[in-house]
């Protein structure tokens, strides 16, 4: 693996970590607001259906979490299992994107249903 790819992975992990830090706060505040007076499906859908801003937020949240987690696990696998090289890196990025797609699909469900 080239030094440049390793550096870009590192930068991507830190940038996603920064975003996740803010996103988790937004998420927690939303949860606290949402559960006041009980949680109902209609109430949630009322907030998210057709709300492009919320969809963009949750999609970015899922993408950041997917990439961040996969890169972190990649680093651990490199050290502990010796899984190094371009092939492994591509596989981890694939795992990250697939994980993110699950989250994005869920967000799309809330947006478009």
């Amino acid at each position: 693996m080239s030094a440049r790819a390793g550096r870009h992975m590192w930068v991507a992990q830190r940038v996603t970590a920064m975003f996740l830090g803010v996103a988790v706060l937004v998420h927690l505040v939303t949860i606290m607001v949402a559960v006041r007076g009980g949680l109902s499906a209609t109430e949630i859908l009322g907030r998210t259906q057709g709300a492009t801003g919320w969809f963009a937020f949750y999609a970015a949240f899922a993408l950041a979490a997917g990439l961040h987690g996969a890169i972190g696990l990649r680093n651990i696998a490199m050290e502990w299992l010796g899984w190094r090289g371009r092939g492994f890196d591509m596989a981890w990025l694939g795992i990250g994107v697939v994980t993110a797609l699950f989250g994005i699909r869920a967000a799309w469900g809330l947006y478009a249903s």
């Binding site: 080239s2 030094a3 790819a5 992975m9």
Partner: peptide, 12 residues
């Protein structure tokens, strides 16, 4: 800086 970057360098 290029020589010290990446998985064999500071990022590990």
């Amino acid at each position: 800086l290029e020589a010290v970057s990446g998985d064999a360098g500071c990022h590990s």
